[in-house]
Amino acid sequence: MSAFGAMVWNGFREARRNRVTVVVGAFAAVVMLSSTLVTEVTVATFDRVLTDFGLGMMSLILVFLTIFLSSGLLSREIERRTIFLIVSKPVSRTQFLLARLAGNMLTLALLMVAMMLIFDSQLLLFGAKITSTQYVAAAGLWFELLVLSSAGILFSSFAGPMVSAVCTTGLYFAGHLAGDLLDIARRAESETVQELTQALYYLLPNLERLNFRSHAAYDLPVDVTTFASSAGYAVAWAMVFTAISLFIFERRDFR
């Protein structure tokens, strides 16, 4: 195994042995299985409610876990001085940071796969339809988690876990409201407000571009171009956040 691979695997192992991940994983399983309860409140829109609830819960739980894992990723290593024993090896700080991000994304991907398996078995159990758009929605969620993870790591490169978590949570909500900012810009009469809201829109990642859950609930097709441009958009934002993190992290003193 290469040094990079070993660090990625270690990141995954850390998350797997973290009690919070285990508890959240168990909670996710319980919540997904309890989707039977929501079927009680619907008659005609059975498939839609099941899909909406399942994917919504998946998003909520994984976003929480992403914020928890990523916001302390670097700051905890620096505070506990575990980083001394790693960056003193023949690996660059860039490799270390990218491996931590990759380890985080691997953990989230595997949890997502497990949650999708439970989700699909629920659908099969109730005779509801499994559609490709449900998988597109899950993939969109993974790209959203990539943006949030890289933002969490960025905040974590200069602030403590608490501040990083608050900032990442703020970015999550602001990112989902970014589309509204553009609406405000269009409707505002003041030129200053228009410019300000427009500037804010371009400074924030529009996370709604990665939300295909309503497509999945209504079984609407998502064309390849739309998905590819959204995925590219997420990767671009993740690259921007990671580049800034690297710029800061490479110059930091570990006292």
Partner: peptide, 11 residues
């Protein structure tokens, strides 16, 4: 390298 009060990954 052995740092002062080393802190390896406890997990």
């Amino acid at each position: 390298f052995l740092p002062e009060n080393p802190s390896p990954y406890e997990y």
